[in-house]
Nucleic acid binder design. Structure first.
Lengths: 294, 294
DNA sequence: CAGAGGCGTTGCAAAAATTGCAGCGGTTAG
DNA sequence: CTAACCGCTGCAATTTTTGCAACGCCTCTG
């Protein structure tokens, strides 16, 4: 899109922080870049950058414009995706921000199955905690977010929600393995391995122990779900996870026992996108598939 | 906006129906215009026009693109209006589609009062029946619609709604004048002057007589609310109107008597805009004022 | 059935816009 | 104070866009 090059330049200057640096990144002279920015500001009717002695920074008007630029680019992508859908082949690129729990089994399987039907669609998956995921949506860096217990939900349009009870995971020969369900009070008797506080599972657990007056004894805290699984499988620790991130068949050495709902309220896994925007066809169809799978 | 000239050209060709005609309108050569269209289609990745022997017409892809173009222009206007709001002066242009009933008193008063506070804002008011009004919104020809009993309400985002009982109007010396309220069965005893079927008041009346088994006897049908008022004021006929279109103080020769709600359900007057779009600041502020006035 | 009058498209030269280069004045960090 | 970095500008070179004329295609019309 040649006619949108000004927008690219504005973004480049925003990223680089100065015209000269942006000029290098863009393979263009600083003078040319400068003149295009000035010309644009002229037409636009207002300055969009603050001129600082060490470079340039977007002013409030520029921030507003930047959001317009992103929105307009996304909408153009949506139109193009829609058009190529019209001609038969579904093309496009789907950008997903999601929690770690979706990575090992769920998303790879869904993406593979979707790509079987539509090979011309590509994907990018970014691991984000629930706060970052929502921010990603509003900067148009992701089309879809798939998160457990989102934080604020402003500008978040829910496409699908599904309950996910918090599930304890442990080695097959752990004393508690084989039970149909567990109370939180039973778990705290053993060493625990927990996700860090920014994660939804942890929030739910904290809320539960706070209510019951228990405390989460000696524990290991990590932001790697992988590590939680391993510590549980090959140590004596109990980890916690949500069902969508578990696959008992592939890991027979792991026992999965749900906590009873009375103790730890099951959270919800949300699939959503930015409010007030229409998704490209590819993203929309993929979202439908996921919703069905959940 | 120089960089959006391609869009203007595409619209020009769409309007004119052929490159050569559009070229004249745009003060440009057909060849130049042609080449820009072709270049754009190249970048876009698909043809957007059908080449007919008598000219060009948008294909489905083109229709999609056209909508994007309009949306993007509107959003740019919104950003600019927002920005100039930031710099102090509130500028902008507000386009309103509304029913006839709003024309004589309500809108002129509101617009005058708004312009007193913000002289840099201009207005255009288009009379539309409720179906046209909704269409106007979706082609971005109007920012706001103010209509009585809208028809489909798809893509219509309601900002405010207010009940408007159907009101009979007649000469001061009409036998029914002076009554606090009226039944529909009492009205049909007299000659009636009704708005045409596309209007909301008429729909409500038709529904009422259909329910009660009455019939709307000898009548005059017109699409001019002005004419209804005059026929009522200076003849023996009974006309119908909604309160927002009446101003008893200025027309003492007219008696206004509401129909009782049991007979003719009062309809609603809706203020709204196109779903999934953000309004320019000026339009938004004006909408707020109107909502308060209603 | 032939020709006139639409239409979109194309080669080529002229015109216009954009770019690169070099250099200016200003501010900051050491 | 100097060196480094910044945004900005005059001028010439370059690239892009435009206008002109002509071509081939089609459809109406006499």
């Amino acid at each position: 899109m040649r006619h949108l090059k000004v927008y690219k330049m504005i973004e480049a200057v925003h990223r680089a922080g100065s015209i000269r640096k942006a000029a290098e990144d863009t393979n263009i002279t600083a003078s040319a870049l400068n003149r295009r920015i000035c010309a644009f500001e002229d037409e636009f009717g207002a300055e969009i950058f603050e001129r600082l002695p060490r470079g340039m920074r977007l002013n409030p008007a520029g921030e507003l414009l930047l959001h317009h630029i992103r929105a307009q680019r996304q909408d153009m992508a949506r139109v193009q995706s829609h058009v190529s859908d019209l001609t038969g082949v579904r093309r496009g690129h789907v950008k997903i921000a999601c929690s770690q729990a979706l990575l090992p089994y769920f998303l790879p399987r869904e993406i593979a199955s979707y790509r079987e039907a539509h090979p011309a669609v590509s994907f990018s998956v970014t691991v984000r905690d629930r706060i970052q995921a929502e921010r990603d949506l509003s900067t148009f860096e992701s089309d879809l977010a798939l998160v457990f217990e989102p934080a604020h939900m402003v500008d978040f349009a829910v496409l699908h929600a599904v309950r996910q009870p918090v599930t304890a995971i442990m080695s097959r020969d752990h004393p508690l393995a084989g039970r149909p369900s567990l109370r939180i009070s039973e778990c705290v008797e053993y060493p625990l391995v927990l996700p860090q506080p920014q994660y939804g599972v942890r929030t739910l657990l904290d809320r539960a122990v706070h209510r019951t007056g228990l405390s989460l004894g000696p524990l290991l805290e990590t932001d790697s779900f992988e590590m939680i699984r391993h510590s549980a499988a090959y140590g004596q620790a109990i980890g916690f996870q949500i069902p969508v991130g578990l696959n008992p068949e592939r890991h027979p050495e792991l026992a999965c026992v749900p906590l009873i709902d009375r103790d730890v309220t099951g959270g919800q896994l949300f699939l959503g996108h930015l409010k007030a925007r229409s998704l490209p066809v590819a993203a929309l169809k993929f979202a439908e598939q996921i919703a069905k799978a959940l």
